[in-house]
Amino acid sequence: MNWGSWSEFFAMGGYALYVWGSYAVTAGLMVVELILLVLRRRGILNRFGGKS
């Protein structure tokens, strides 16, 4: 195990800003992409689906 404690883990040896900045933006973009895809699909079903 690399980390003595959780605070050590979050500190990332002093590189917290860079490491977590990278991971947060990456995860955020992926989640947003999936949300947008679900919304796009709902929009299509609302516009063209149902009682057409």
Partner: peptide, 24 residues
């Protein structure tokens, strides 16, 4: 990447960005 991979000899913990940088 975070719990098993060791610290890098040159870059310390900052190298852990590699686990998303290279795949991306």
């Amino acid at each position: 990447g975070f719990f098993m991979a060791p610290t890098d000899h040159q870059q310390g913990e900052s190298y852990r960005i590699i686990f998303i940088h290279v795949p991306a």
